[in-house]
């Protein structure tokens, strides 16, 4: 069956056999956008985090049927080298990634947080960012989140 949605500002229609297929696999295998990662398949690690209508979603556990008609943003649509999103800019400034595998998910979670709260406290970051990074980049990540918030505020003003 056909399901249509807008992904990274582009309208697409995908033909899926099972409407309960996790959105993650439709994005990775049908649309060939590999920036959104598989980590656990149980919404426990956050590697597959993306935005649906601006809200943070763990796409490994989100049936593609629910995405119909909605706006999806993945890491590829968040920004690019010429025009990075403040979160990506901050991640570059703080040189956050090590292996890098979980980082898309963290950046998407951070971008969603900053949309709600462009000056999060440390406690608010602790409550909102629940992804897992095995390389242990959390120390730089916290600095990058504060920096991204600052860049977001600058952009607005």
């Amino acid at each position: 069956m056909n399901i249509s949605f807008i992904i990274n500002n582009k309208e697409v229609t995908v033909d899926v056999k099972d409407e309960y297929t996790p959105l993650l696999w439709v994005i990775r295998d049908h649309l060939n956008l590999k920036g959104t990662k598989f980590g656990c398949g149980k919404a426990a690690c956050g590697a597959c985090t993306l935005h649906i209508d601006g809200a943070e979603i763990r796409s490994c556990s989100y049936a593609v049927k629910f995405a119909a008609g909605k706006h999806i943003t993945t890491i590829e649509g968040l920004g690019n080298e010429e025009n990075p999103h403040p979160v990506q800019q901050a991640w570059i400034e703080e040189v956050v990634p090590q292996c890098g595998y979980c980082q898309s998910g963290f950046m998407m979670a951070t971008a969603a947080l900053l949309k709600e709260n462009n000056n999060p406290s440390d406690d608010e970051i602790d409550d909102a960012i629940l992804n897992i990074c095995r390389c242990g980049t959390y120390y730089r990540m916290r600095k990058a989140i504060h920096r991204a918030a600052e860049l977001s505020r600058d952009q607005k003003s």
């Binding site: 598989f38 990506q88 040189v95």
Partner: peptide
């Protein structure tokens, strides 16, 4: 490898 990892390039085995 910073940019590849910040902009979601398909660089992993997966």
């Amino acid at each position: 490898d910073l940019n590849a990892k910040v902009f979601g390039a398909p660089i992993f085995g997966m």
